[in-house]
Amino acid sequence: MTIMQIIFLITASVTLFAALMVVSTRKMMHAAMWLILVLFGVTITFALLETRFFAIVQLVIYIGAIAILIIFAVMLTRRSMNADVPQVNRNWWLVMVSSLALFVGLVTVMSVWEGFFVTARTAPPGGENLVQLGTALVDPNGFVLPFEVASLVLLAAMVGAIYVAAERKEK
């Protein structure tokens, strides 16, 4: 077992444990903190796969922006900050059994696929070729249409968020 494998095993188990804590802890704030640990674990996994770009994106966007945003949202809504309500309802065991069954089923199905056992490919020497990624996003022969549509989706979501959240002057 190489050092890399040991690091991977430790990262993976910490990530999985933290993910479990995100959904099982009672305090929203704690869940947000555990979420940061999960995202950090994913960052390390990306780094182990030698994909620098994705590791940095994961770090900057997910931890730097999204997780912090979640923490702000929790802090600004006082009731959810102190909420200590039960995490599960009566049907929790039913859900657990069915999600476990789903998991086992998916793994069984996927294991018949030869791609399931291929060892992870590392990035080619010289990095992930960011220039290609960048031009593909604005190239008509690449992904310019999905890219523009995605920005339109974000615009609509932004207008909606402002509409829903903004204070109304009248009344």
């Binding site: 549509v149 339109l152 989706v153 609509a156 207008v159 909606g160 829903v164």
Partner: peptide
């Protein structure tokens, strides 16, 4: 694109 405006 069609759903998000409809949610709002």
């Amino acid at each position: 694109l069609l759903s998000i405006p409809l949610y709002i």
